[in-house]
């Protein structure tokens, strides 16, 4: 029996080995050619740009973080063969295509204004005080076209100009701060910094607090649960198990 279980785990291991230990040429059926920094590489079709670079032999240090579309480290610009249009993408979330010319942009140089969120007034003018350059927006929509998250970047810049924190927050919520908009902006606006400021201001000043949370913090501070904790923490494992089972049976439905 024991042996069977081991081989079960080995079967499971085998099923995903390509993802884990580097791809073997003999497992690949379809190939494409990409140009990284101008050099041509044959890579398996169906990989992401990031996986393809690794296949080609690059051990990434820059331009690779979460590998899942959340951290904004892997910004990439590319052109397809025969197309004039410059495209933007996240390397970990984009499939390679035959004839892609690409380069990664691991860093977007941009200073962030410093502020003390506790001391700011919730007023439209505050946003413009820190980001006067939003007034230079020429509404060219380049940022929106560049955004790999498909956000309406220009719209949130326009909302920022009006000091509409709520709209800035809502339109920019899914920003992964990849910097691609800022790199392309002719008005040299750093959209993601504007957005971060807008979201924090809205979160801090624009939304009511829930009372229950504040109340619970006080109750805990006043030691209102101490007795119950002492009781529970003095139970034997056996007793605790039955308390747990009972509690699971009173689960709130979801």
């Amino acid at each position: 029996m024991a042996e069977k279980k081991i081989s079960l785990m080995d079967t499971v291991r085998d099923a995903s080995k390509g993802v884990i230990s580097g791809i073997d040429k003999k497992d690949v059926e379809h190939w494409v050619e990409i140009y990284f920094l101008g050099k041509a590489y044959q890579v398996p079709a169906g990989l992401t740009i990031m996986q393809a670079l690794e296949y080609a032999g690059y051990r990434l240090i820059r331009s690779c973080g979460c590998r899942a579309g959340f951290c904004g480290a892997c910004s990439t610009v590319f052109r397809r063969k025969g197309e004039y249009k410059l495209q933007t993408a996240m390397a970990c979330q984009t499939r390679v295509e035959d004839g892609m010319y690409l380069v990664q942009i691991p860093f977007s140089p941009a200073e962030k204004p410093l502020y003390d969120i506790e001391k700011e007034k919730y007023e439209a003018s505050v946003l413009l005080k820190y980001f006067p350059e939003v007034a230079r927006c020429v509404s060219c929509n380049t940022c929106t076209k560049a955004c790999p998250q498909d956000l309406q970047v220009m719209d949130y810049v326009q909302a920022a100009l009006k000091g509409d924190y709520k709209q800035v927050a809502e339109l920019s919520f899914e920003c992964i701060q990849c910097g691609l908009c800022a790199i392309r902006c002719p008005a040299e606006i750093v959209q993601y910094h504007v957005a971060q400021f807008g979201r924090r201001m809205y979160g801090k000043y624009g939304i009511p607090r829930e009372e229950n949370t504040e109340k619970r913090v006080k109750e805990i501070k006043n030691g209102e649960f101490n007795k119950k904790f002492e009781e529970i923490m003095s139970l034997s494992e056996e007793e605790l198990r039955s308390v747990y089972t009972e509690q699971q049976n009173t689960r709130e439905v979801y």
């Binding site: 924090r200 801090k204 939304i207 009511p208 607090r209 829930e210 913090v217």
Partner: peptide, 19 residues
């Protein structure tokens, strides 16, 4: 949670500010 809210984090809430 209170700390994060005070720093300006945006949690899912209903219209009344309840989580």
């Amino acid at each position: 949670i209170k700390w994060l809210e005070e720093l300006g984090a945006l949690f899912d809430k209903d219209e009344n500010g309840n989580f």
